[in-house]
């Protein structure tokens, strides 16, 4: 998947703690293994210029998670887990990756995952299963299939909407 031009929004990243970190060049800081960026799609679609730090209720935010293999050898079993931020609501069908990956969701705070979470409701006295409403989604998980060569990158993305009410999202 071609990467969209991402905007840096309060970017932070944690240091990789790994036994075989690739030694960085003396003048070039080592790449961060996981970088997350956010992009206000609503402002961009509307032709706005300022898509940086501010989003309004109802705006759609695209999050991109880029993992770089900073080790000397190939890695595998790469798995992203992203709790949907409080104040955001997952946009159904928006989770994707640029490598083959299995995408699953949790509606119970990350305890369990499913490709299609459902809930059980009672209709006319009978229990029926319904797709879980998007407000219930709490986590997105990508399990990347195959291995990733040194210095290679894999990107996962999903979209959320700034909730109209504080109680909307989990």
């Amino acid at each position: 998947m071609k990467l969209l031009r991402l905007l840096s929004i309060g970017l932070m990243s944690a240091a990789l703690v790994a036994p075989r970190v690739v030694a960085a060049h003396a003048q070039v800081p080592p790449p961060k293994p996981l970088v997350i960026t956010a992009h206000n799609m609503t402002v961009a679609t509307a032709g706005g210029q300022d898509t940086r730090a501010v989003a309004r209720p109802g705006d759609v935010i695209r999050y991109a998670l880029v993992f770089t293999n900073v080790t000397a050898g190939p890695v595998k079993n790469i798995q992203f887990v992203d709790p949907i931020p409080k104040g955001m609501i997952y946009v159904p069908g928006s989770a994707a990756a640029d490598h083959p990956a299995r995408i699953e969701y949790s509606i119970d705070g990350g305890k369990s995952y499913s490709a299609q979470p459902t809930i059980q409701v009672v209709e006319e006295g009978r229990k029926v299963e319904k797709p879980a409403p998007r407000q219930l989604y709490t986590h997105v998980r990508w399990t990347v299939l195959g291995s990733l060569a040194p210095q290679a990158r894999v990107m996962a993305e999903f979209r959320t909407q700034v909730s109209e009410a504080p109680g909307d999202a989990k």
């Binding site: 293994p33 209720p57 790469i78 992203d82 709790p83 104040g87 700034v162 909730s163 009410a165």
Partner: peptide
């Protein structure tokens, strides 16, 4: 609506293994 000035932070994690 979500109050003006609210800071929404998204923190993700990635796990992996070697060969």
């Amino acid at each position: 609506q979500t109050p003006e000035g609210t800071v929404i932070t998204n923190t993700a994690t990635a796990t992996y293994t070697d060969a």
